[in-house]
Amino acid sequence: MPEATLLRIFDSQTSASGTPLMNKLGSPTTMKAFVIGPIGDKDADDGSPARLAYEEGIQVFEEVIAPACIAFGLEAVRADMISQTGEIPEQIFRQLRDCPVVIADLTGANPNVMYELGLRHTTGRVTIQLGEKGRLPFDVAAIRTIMFKRTEAGIVQARKDLAKSLAANLDTGGDPVTATRIWFEASLPDLKVTNLESGKAADTASDEDAPGFLELLAEMETGMQSLTQTIVAAGSIVQDISVVCTEATASVRQATARGNGAATARLAVAELTAAKLNEQAARMEVVSGEFARTVDRVEPGIQYLLTRLSEEPDQLVATPDFPVQLKNLCDAAHSSIESSDAMRKNLIEIGKASRSLKRSCDRLALSFQRFSETSRRIADWSKLLDKLAPVSTNAEPTGP
């Protein structure tokens, strides 16, 4: 590929990615993932157990947990990263109780970590366990745990496995462990439910109630939050690709300025760029796949709710924010279609520079195509939304 064309493509990619995928949604608050695990002591003597525990814990945090969380718009936080003043145990307990996601590094079976994990399990909320092979407590063997080897390949695989686990559990909330289910069951009174139409006791085992309007509404709002989060995550990937392309542009220009051996230097830049884009391709494959799966899950409920609201407009009084939230999501989907399509076309062009670039760019282009197709499905919800009473454009967007 001629040098001018390569520079033009990289430059156009940098400018094209300047439009955020979620510019219609505002800036939602970042969800946190609280990380429990060995903290150690960074000020301890080199080679000491406390220093080794710190180094191993921070490696898992920086190379496995934080990158996987970033892909889903989550901010990973350890106890030693909390800057707020106050008592440390109280802050930890509040995070364990309130954070939507807790990730536990069980390497070494630290007693404090096991205690904190037990407290977290009583909440029934998303809790993901990981740890180094051979250094896990046998007590958690029955609970699904991501096990890894502390090698370069093992760390990469752990990051991928954690990303998959986040993708599978963020929307569903995960399944509570057996101890949690038993704990909750013990607190439930033994009630006889009466069928309001017949006046007879209903058999809850065989006559399960269908979800009502409010249950459907709550599920859809949760789904929209997940979709918004995924759009934000895709926007982050776009920005990271922009950085990669900007760096590649600067490197190509430097190689050209040196003169002799410029072609070889440009090929080296292409190889390095391909490796960096491969990292973004792995992130985008997870995000685009989860985006499509979430839409598959919530779309029937969205369509039902919109149809019911159009038939019973009085229900809008009880849920005035829902149409506004959905309109924001549809607008964001429209914007993401344009950005995704432009990104896909640019990546195809960039891939013409070398074989390695083609492989990484093809992976990315396929994911952006999938993301665009899913966004079109969301954008089509606006057709049903138009059948409702007009959504006030002066309403303050609340975001899903």
Rank of each mutant, 00 (worst) to 15 (best):
M1N: 03
G40C: 01
W183P: 03
P320N: 04
V113T: 04
G173C: 03
G259W: 09
T393I: 11
I231F: 10
R159F: 13
L364T: 04
P323A: 05
I9G: 02
P38R: 11
D43W: 14
V101I: 11
G173A: 02
E197Y: 04
L384A: 07
K345H: 05
T19H: 05
F34A: 00
Q303I: 14
R266Q: 03
G40Y: 01
N260P: 08
A163K: 08
R144Q: 15
Q225L: 15
Q157I: 06
S206A: 12
D240M: 12
T122Q: 06
I88Y: 01
T180K: 15
P320L: 08
P2E: 13
W183Y: 14
Y115C: 03
A153P: 04
E221V: 15
S165V: 10
F72K: 00
V126T: 05
A158E: 05
M81L: 11
Q369S: 10
L357Y: 01
R94N: 05
L106E: 01
P189W: 07
Q325C: 09
L52F: 04
S198Y: 09
S206I: 11
A282S: 06
E247Q: 13
G26K: 00
A255L: 00
R293M: 07
A158M: 08
D207P: 03
R370H: 10
Q254T: 00
S48Y: 01
S12A: 13
L227E: 07
E338T: 15
A342F: 06
A66H: 06
N169S: 14
R78Q: 07
G235H: 04
A379W: 13
K42Y: 07
L388E: 00
T319Q: 07
R181I: 15
A53Q: 08
L188P: 03
A281L: 02
G124F: 00
A292Q: 15
K383G: 02
I39V: 13
I9H: 13
D331R: 08
E152T: 11
T264K: 15
A33M: 05
S226C: 14
L188I: 13
G47M: 11
S165I: 06
A141D: 10
G235Q: 04
D175G: 04
K24Q: 12
A218Y: 15
S48D: 10
S206N: 14
A179P: 04
V77T: 08
A163C: 05
L6M: 14
A168M: 09
M343R: 09
M284C: 07
